[in-house]
Simulated assay, not measured.
Amino acid sequence: MFRSIVILFAFSSIFLACGLKNENKAEITILPEGEASLYFLGEVDNDVTTSCGQATPATTATTGTGTTGTTGTTTSNTNNTRFTVISQLIFKTKETLNLRFTYDSTQIQGKIDPQQGFVLAGGAFGKTVQGTQGTVEWFNQGINIDTALQSAQQISFFNLEVTLNGTYSTSTTSTTSILNSCNTLDSVNCTSGTSTTQCFTSDNKTCLVQNTNTDAKSVIIRGTLKCNAPNIVPQ
C-alpha cells in the first residue's frame, strides 16, 4: 500500500515543485514502521482553510489573600507568554491535518497536547494517523501570535518544524476530510456537557485516539508546515 503511495507522491512532487512558490505547503516525511518512507509535498487549500489556526491564552489558577484576610482562588492569565494553538490544515490533495500544541513566546518549541494531539487523515494518503506525542518548533517569528492580546485570536501565518509520533492501522483506509473537536470526559467518547478536555472526532460521537489494534504500526512524521492566510487581519 505504502509503496504505491510513494510512487504517487513521487510524481506529485515533481509536478508541484515547479508550481509551489507560495507559503502554503507541507514538506514532511512519513516514516511507518517496517514500510518504505513516504515523502509528502502538499499545498494548503486556502479556499477551505480560512486561517492557520486559533491561539487561546493559557490560564492558570492563582490563590491570593484579600484585605479582610479571606483567601480565594481566581483564574488569571499570569503567564501571558503561553497559548494553546489549534490548527486545521486542509490540503489540495484532500488530506486534513489537525494539530493542537502549546506555544510559548519565550521558547522555540512546544509539545503536542497530551490529550488532543494530532490527526492526519484522508486524501491520497488514505490512512488515519493519530497520536499525542511530539514537538513543534517555530524558531524566530515562526508564528504570528500577539502575546499582548489576552483573548482568542486567529493566526494568519506560521512556519513550523514538526516531529509527531503516532500510530495507524494497516487494514483500514480513511476518506475523512474535515475533523471536528468535541468535549470529552474520558478521552474516548464525546459528551454534550462541558469539560476541560477536548479531542478530535470524525463522527461527533467518539474520539480519534491512539490506534491499539493488533495490526497498528508506529509512525513518525517529520518536516515543515507552512501556512499563510492573507485574509486574516492581525488583531
Rank of each mutant, 00 (worst) to 15 (best):
L149D: 12
G42Y: 00
L120R: 00
L89P: 05
C207S: 09
K25W: 03
T93M: 05
L179C: 08
E161T: 10
P114W: 14
L225V: 10
T173E: 01
G123H: 01
N46R: 05
G126N: 07
T172C: 11
F139Q: 12
N183C: 05
G126F: 01
S169M: 03
T170W: 06
A229Q: 02
I90G: 01
T62H: 01
C18F: 02
N144R: 14
T191Q: 13
F157C: 05
F9Q: 01
V44H: 00
T224Q: 10
D146R: 12
I221E: 09
T201E: 03
K94A: 08
Q109W: 12
L160C: 15
T176Y: 09
Q109A: 11
S105L: 01
Q88T: 13
T65L: 04
I5A: 04
T71M: 09
E23M: 09
N46E: 07
L89V: 03
L31P: 14
L20K: 00
S156Q: 10
T163F: 15
C52P: 11
F118I: 10
N144E: 10
F11T: 00
E161P: 05
F157P: 05
C52I: 06
C52L: 08
E33C: 10
C190Y: 02
I90Q: 08
T59N: 03
F157Y: 12
N46S: 06
T163I: 13
G53V: 11
